[in-house]
């Protein structure tokens, strides 16, 4: 019995170490964001200190406010997400359910576009956007963001649409409901959850994007990730402030991640399961 208890204790200890390794840097960041710059550099580090919201105030309303950058991120990410869903849901329905000509190759094509390394595409994007004068514009950025969110959204939606029982659709069609009405009023309500999860993942991916944002953005359209990155290279020492900015930028993805936590595994492996052609 005591040996068993010891083993359980060891397992628990192992698990707690793990938890600490993953959670600690983030908690440490939270602590840092509540310190004064002087407390940050104190040695040994202060675990008990007088918390201050000055960093948040400075980051939001000070001279180097990130509010415009949060707005840029929100516009780019929000519009990208809406457009992606408007394009992806119908396409996924055609792939999952309808007699689409060239269905298999169509599906494979969508999957293949996802495998292209972003660094390979950024050079043509830059050259083309420069030529048409769309560098550092919302429309340029959103157009490019569509290209990496679409394949993912289509495949995730396909996996949800395939789970809808076929009978529902057939019954609706027999009622002469028409194809569009069947899709809108019979199929889509069935995959509400899938649409919500897909929307969350598309938003997460776009919000976290950095490479395209740093190359194709500029003074007008500068997402919060890029702004933070500039922070680090310009103001090396203001780490409490950087931590506060990071906390603000991270808040939406953490909340969305927690909302979608049960679906994370599915969201991250979608396509791989199908792409292997095993199932």
């Amino acid at each position: 019995m005591s040996r068993r208890a010891l083993r359980a204790l060891l397992l628990l200890a192992g698990a707690s170490v793990l938890l600490a390794v993953w959670a600690f840097p983030i908690l440490w960041g939270l602590l840092t964001s509540l310190k004064t710059e002087r407390d940050v550099l104190a040695y040994p580090p202060k675990l008990i200190f007088e918390p201050t919201l000055a960093n948040y105030r400075e980051v939001l309303f000070g001279s180097a406010s990130i509010l415009p950058n949060l707005w840029s991120s929100l516009v780019v990410t929000g519009i990208t997400t809406i457009l992606t869903m408007l394009l992806a849901v119908p396409a996924a329905y055609a792939l999952a359910r309808l007699d689409l000509p060239g269905k298999r190759s169509g599906g494979f094509y969508v999957l293949a576009t996802q495998m292209l390394p972003p660094v390979g595409l950024i050079i043509p994007y830059f050259l083309v956007l420069q030529r048409v004068g769309w560098l550092d514009t919302y429309q340029g950025m959103i157009a490019i963001y569509l290209t990496f969110s679409l394949p993912f959204a289509i495949w995730l939606m396909v996996s949800y649409l395939e789970d809808v029982p076929r009978e529902m659709e057939e019954a609706a069609l027999l009622d002469r409901a028409g194809r569009i009405r069947t899709l809108l009023y019979v199929i889509l309500p069935q995959v509400r959850g899938g649409i919500a999860v897909t929307t969350i993942f598309v938003f997460l991916n776009a919000w976290n994007e950095f490479l395209f944002a740093v190359v194709l953005g500029g003074n007008r359209v500068r997402t919060v990730n890029v702004a933070m990155f500039n922070f680090i290279s310009v103001e090396q020492t203001l780490w409490a402030r950087l931590a506060a900015a990071a906390m603000i930028a991270m808040a939406p993805v953490i909340i969305l991640g927690l909302l979608a936590q049960r679906h994370i595994v599915k969201g991250l492996t979608v396509g791989a399961v199908k792409g292997g052609g095993r199932r």
Binding site: L19, L204, N208, N225, I264
Partner: peptide, 25 residues
């Protein structure tokens, strides 16, 4: 609880993770 802790790093932007390690760790 572990599952939630595991989700944290995954949802963070890699650029933020890089900065975190550079400035805090």
């Amino acid at each position: 609880a572990l599952r939630i802790a595991a989700i944290m790093p995954i949802v963070l932007a890699p650029v933020v993770v890089g900065m975190f390690w550079r400035t805090l760790v």
